[in-house]
Design a protein around this nucleic acid. Structure first.
Lengths: 246, 246
DNA sequence: CGCCTATTTGATCTGATTCAAACAATGTGG
DNA sequence: CCACATTGTTTGAATCAGATCAAATAGGCG
């Protein structure tokens, strides 16, 4: 069960994008006892109401967080990329208030709460890194909220593309101006509070303005400044600055 | 400067609503060196771009968190009530990605980051309480997002009322079926992603259905089950269960 | 009392939804 | 390797929830 696993490299990379990791912390992180799990697209990983006793790190693929409201409508509340620990909250809040599901085929590393608590006990400063990650997640929720509440469809779509590209870039998953973007128009609609029909029209608009190219699962940003402009994008909320030492 | 201050009682009450506080932790919390500050309604407390070196606890009054987007539109992203520490994130994320402002006249207790870090150093378990509070905040952001994205105006307004009542009840600020609600229709609009005109019509609808009474700054819920029903309200996301000891 | 802010009402407009259907891509089993 | 099923994308037309504009009324307060 306990394995020193190179798979966790991506987690270190993610952590180092937002936190000044020390050598012994990196070693401890990489030595976490994990269980690797490959899972197909569109599977629930954790469900509303669950009380998990373990959490997972995403190694490969995309995951989303969602909530079903009222009459079968779905709101996607975040997308998660490799290196992230979307379910960190279950360590501190017993009952799930939403669900997590795969978007694509994924590779996950499961860690028991017990092992994570032990890791944090042994390296208390590491908690700062996890807390930073959780707080940045919250900042992203707020930014999405502002978008859904006060920005029009075009701005919302453009903004999301800027955000995903930036986040992927921070962990080295972009090449030039392209990044993986395996999100269907229906999923975009559920994330942005739009209908899939309107997402489709909005994408055509962005393509028409030569801002992006979007084919299958790859997004290419053809005009970064233009996309930022139309998407009202300011990366402050991503807090991609290494935390001050302390 | 250092003062054992009964003013902080509300903070303890809030913490105890979500966390199993130990005696020595309560004592340490109450002994925090604070600076009390009375401030008028509609004043910014912290602004986008600031790098605060202290944070505040809200003792009396209502505070909101907001972001200006695009062409002068405002999105209010949360309301905060006495006992809360809305700016906890500034302890771990250097630069503010939003602003905080008073809604009503308020009484605040300012604490330096230094003092808070020292408190947590001395009582590491306390961090769990703060983290729980921050994670519950994030859960509230997500719930609002789901509302703005996928619920209609009536549902959104009713949902917010259920939420505010529940949160106020948890810290003992309700009486019978009434709670303080000093939020203008314009502010509700900015929080719910609606226009003030439409908020007004929605309030009339809820009043017409005998679900609520709303006068000046007091909300009375006349039909809790009805309001919950129309507001699609499920309190799971508020996590108002004391954390398991551990 | 008079000023300022908040609430309310009415009329009109619009961004986005809904409905319906065609079309393209991807995957599956025979 | 093809026929078929499934899922995702695209188009057009009709509709609607909520926005916008404009103006009147009502509170709160110095």
């Amino acid at each position: 069960m306990a394995r020193l696993n190179g798979n966790l490299d991506i987690v270190v990379r993610k952590m180092e994008a937002i936190f000044d990791l020390r050598d012994e912390e990196r070693t401890a992180l990489l030595a976490l006892p994990i269980q690797i799990n490959d899972i197909k697209a569109r599977q629930d990983l954790v469900r509303f109401g669950d009380r998990p006793s373990r959490t997972f790190v995403l190694l490969e693929g995309f995951v989303c967080r969602y909530l079903m409201v009222g009459a079968g409508e779905r709101q996607i509340m975040s997308f998660h990329i490799p290196g992230e620990t979307p379910d960190f909250q279950s360590l501190y809040l017993r009952t799930m208030d939403h669900s997590l599901a795969t978007i694509t085929d994924c590779k996950l590393a499961w860690v028991t709460h017990e092992a994570l608590h032990a890791l944090i006990e042994a390296h208390p400063r590491l908690l700062r890194g996890f807390v930073r990650e959780a707080l940045i997640d919250a900042a992203i929720f707020r930014e999405w909220m502002a978008g859904i509440g006060r920005r029009d469809a075009t701005t919302r779509v453009a903004h999301l593309m800027c955000e995903m590209f930036e986040r992927l870039r921070a962990v080295g998953l972009t090449t030039d101006n392209s990044c993986p973007f395996p999100i269907t128009q229906g999923q975009l609609a559920d994330a942005l509070g739009l209908s899939n029909v309107h997402v489709n029209r909005t994408l055509q608009e962005l393509r028409g303005k030569r801002l992006i190219a979007l084919t299958r699962a790859t997004l290419t940003i053809k005009d970064w400044d233009g996309l930022k402009e139309i998407g009202d994008f300011d990366a402050t909320y991503l807090h991609q600055d290494i935390a001050q030492a302390a």
